[in-house]
Computed example of a mutant assay.
Amino acid sequence: MELFIDILKDTTIDTVKLIPFLFLTYLAMEYLENKAGQKTVRMLLGAGKKGPVIGGILGVVPQCGFSAAAANLYSGGVITVGTMIAVFLSTSDEMLPILISEQADVRKIMAILIGKIIVGIVAGILVDIGVRVLGKGYQRGLHIHDICEHDHCHCEEGSIVKSALIHSVQILVFIYVISFALNAVVEWIGMEEVMNVVTHYPIAGIFLAGLVGLIPNCAASITITKFYLEGVLNVGSMFAGLLSCAGIGLIVLFKTNHSWKKNVMIVATLYGISVVCGIIVEILFGM
């Protein structure tokens, strides 16, 4: 019973933290859809090439809701897939607070942050270029109304504040249920047990660390960071795991973007980039 209460408490706290991010994101999306002129919309979509740079820089700021906001904006056609990938790669949930609280070397912290920013920006730009060359929806245009129709929120019948509130409540309920289930699984299996396997196989461990990072739960980033600081994880595994730590953004992506094929491709791309970069970092700095 005590474990159940702890899981319930942790899930509630993590979900409540997302409320301002989700509400403000949906409010901005509703404004764009209902109030902004075509000129403003064209300017937003035209700035797509700069999106990965902005996303890569802003994503590194320790705010758990930014990846969720990026997933929402991508699903609404406001930002490109490369911009979202840049945010996913540069963000890492609780990494920075843990590094600071553990009084890690400032140079080490800066190296990790800069590395994540660079990977996020470069990967985001390359992804956008690839999508544009292949001609598969680089400029999709705003389609926030598609989300509204799917969620049956009847946005056109009320104010944008009401619509944003309805969307926020719906996604929060979804996030809460999924997060609770994931927290229960993590507690049952034990994140430390998973990471112990990673430490025994340096290169193979990078692949597993990348998978651990994909778990949309703050326990992943916390455990990876702590294990690295304690010398249990090598630098390559740490980097791969923290790159793939997109947090709650992955849950929001699967909830709001209704093309599961694209979602799976996005996750595979995120994982592939994280593992490749982890291997490169391990070869350059770990061996």
Score class of each variant (00 low, 15 high):
V177C: 14
L172Y: 13
H154Y: 14
S159P: 02
V198A: 03
V173D: 08
I166V: 12
W188F: 14
V169T: 13
F174E: 09
I175S: 06
F174H: 09
I175R: 00
E187P: 01
Q170H: 08
E193D: 07
I189Q: 04
V177Y: 12
V194L: 13
V186Q: 03
C153R: 00
E157R: 04
L172Q: 13
F180C: 10
I178G: 06
I189W: 01
S179D: 13
C153V: 05
V169Y: 02
A181G: 14
I178H: 02
S179M: 15
V198N: 05
E187R: 04
H154F: 13
E192H: 14
M195Y: 04
M191F: 03
V194T: 06
C155G: 11
C155F: 10
L182Y: 11
F180P: 06
M195H: 00
M191H: 00
I171W: 01
H167S: 11
E187G: 02
S168K: 00
W188K: 12
L182C: 13
V197Q: 09
S163N: 07
V198D: 01
W188G: 10
S179H: 13
N183M: 08
K162I: 05
A181T: 15
M191V: 03
F180R: 01
V194R: 04
A164S: 11
I166H: 05
F174C: 11
C153Y: 02
V161R: 03
V169N: 07
N183I: 05
V177W: 12
V161P: 02
H154I: 08
L165P: 03
F180Q: 03
E192K: 09
V198P: 00
M195S: 01
M195R: 02
V194A: 08
L165F: 08
L165T: 12
V185N: 10
I160K: 01
E156G: 09
H167T: 09
G158P: 00
C155T: 07
E187F: 02
H154L: 13
C153A: 04
A181F: 15
H167M: 15
E192S: 11
V194Y: 04
V169K: 06
V185D: 11
G158L: 06
A184L: 11
S168E: 01
V169W: 02
I175Y: 04
V173R: 14
I171D: 01
I175F: 11
L172N: 13
H167R: 15
M191N: 03
I189T: 08
I175C: 04
V177Q: 12
A164K: 02
Y176H: 06
L172I: 14
F174A: 14
V185F: 05
I166P: 01
E193C: 05
F180H: 05
E193F: 00
V197A: 12
V161W: 06
M195G: 04
M191S: 02
K162C: 05
M195L: 08
I166G: 04
E187W: 03
L172H: 13
L182S: 11
L172M: 15
A164C: 09
G190W: 01
I171Y: 03
Q170W: 09
I166Y: 01
N183C: 08
